[in-house]
Design a protein around this nucleic acid. Structure first.
Lengths: 258, 258
DNA sequence: TAGCGATCGTGACATTTGTTGTGACCGGCG
DNA sequence: CGCCGGTCACAACAAATGTCACGATCGCTA
């Protein structure tokens, strides 16, 4: 049906933002069997420890998070995903899930069976490259989060989260120039940056008091984005937003390793 | 020369611990052009921001770390690598390095040119799968570190680091049953778990006082590994040590996505 | 052999962050 | 309409962690 093909068009666009595809590749992607599915807020999509013979989900609308729990139940959100993100490449080749994946808001996803996806990767090198890059960017973000939580103080951490989200929402065409809808509660922000909800509250209050941001319900408005960036020490390089690969073989002549 | 082939044998073994290879695959890996190289302690192997048209390194002996710096110079170690680890898959398909890679000790590495490695991946699906898995395990470790730094207290963080290292060193055949050589200073431990060197010192002192560990120069000895595991809340599942894939196509019949 | 830099050890004190508890607000639902 | 759960706000106090300062040790090299 045409609805399915709209979704796959979007998936193609996502892949092409990572690696340019041939007409063949495009066709193969468009032929993928997908199943659309809706998740209520807070529903688990994958549970840690679960045996994986599932599918990978592509987010159509809404937001998802990935998180882990310590033995004593403390929760760390390890990543956030927005519409257009591929939801778990991270588990494509593993037997057991090592973390939980959860819908943050009401969420619609297109699910692609693992076997179909693996076959696509086998037969279409440029698609494979696009998926590699997607997974690598994911890892890069994860490293930046580790730096954030490990080395910045509360202000810096929160400011950094807001900046990253701004950059990603903008890239997804979901932000106005001065703000966006932030779909997280203060408690969730705390779980993402390793702080308690109370301290998140204090810190955001301070940011508001300095006229850097305002928050109205879920809408976040930047009054001084440069100020926030400075506090965060934010640079978007780690998002690899401009990463485009044209040749999976990497033929540019300089074969130093040879 | 025979020395080179010894190194590649080891590389093959690494790949085979991730995905079983065909004789063809093995041959292709063994035919890779490698260049051996020695790095002095603290030498940079890759620098953040650098344009990547380099090689990937396979560690023969010694240790390496990957790290990032904040704008104010605070350092977060985001991962550690030991002999037998593939040192930067993380950058295989990216244009710019998003973090630094540094030798921790005197280190010998075998360097494989990026083009050669990419070609190998294109032509040998099982090798590609092995490398996917390697990269995914890397990400999984990164997530666990994030959980560690974000949610555990100082004792838990350090205990967890020690447990992880024990598990990995054991898997690499480099640990005795009661301990191993830990190649990090207290300051480096601090940079890995998001604490100051002073506090690392305090915490380790407490662990010693409770007769859980002793440290003699660089040698770490566990007196009560179960005690340490309990403090860390350690479970080795996230290391995916038993992960072996046999079929890149994932054909087991259940094509739910279809 | 003496000196030097890196690492470890430790104490006193400062600061950040967590904990507990309580109330206001708001939106959904009986 | 009124209740109720979730979220936000905020205050007082407790605990964890950072900062600064200094000395001890040890291996290396001039």
């Amino acid at each position: 049906m045409t609805h399915t093909s709209l979704i796959l068009e979007r998936f193609v666009r996502k892949m092409e933002s990572r690696c340019s595809l041939s007409p063949n590749d495009r066709e193969a992607v468009l032929a993928l069997p997908v199943m659309q599915r809706t998740y209520q807020p807070n529903t688990y999509i994958i549970r840690e420890g679960e045996l994986l013979q599932r599918h990978c989900a592509f987010i159509i609308s809404g937001f998802a998070i990935r998180q882990k729990l310590t033995n004593v139940g403390a929760r760390q959100i390890v990543s956030m995903h927005l519409p257009g993100d591929l939801l778990d490449l991270q588990h494509l080749y593993l037997n057991y899930a090592d973390h939980n994946v959860q819908a943050l808001t009401l969420m619609e996803a297109a699910e692609i069976g693992r076997p179909a996806l693996r076959r696509l990767v086998l037969r279409n090198p440029r698609v494979a490259t696009a998926m590699w890059i997607d997974a690598l960017v994911d890892s890069s973000i994860s490293r930046e989060w580790l730096l954030n939580v490990g080395q910045r103080d509360a202000r810096g951490r929160i400011a950094h989260l807001l900046c990253e989200f701004a950059a990603r929402m903008t890239a997804a065409g979901m932000a106005s120039d001065s703000g966006y809808e932030l779909p997280m509660t203060q408690e969730q922000i705390g779980d993402a940056v390793g702080l308690t909800a109370v301290h998140v509250n204090r810190t955001i209050k301070a940011l508001k008091a300095e006229n850097l941001i305002t928050r109205d319900k879920r809408h976040l408005h930047f009054h001084d984005i440069e100020g926030i960036r400075a506090i965060a020490g934010f640079s978007s390089l780690y998002l690899h937003l401009d990463q485009i690969t044209t040749d999976p073989e990497d033929r540019p002549g300089d074969e130093r390793g040879a």
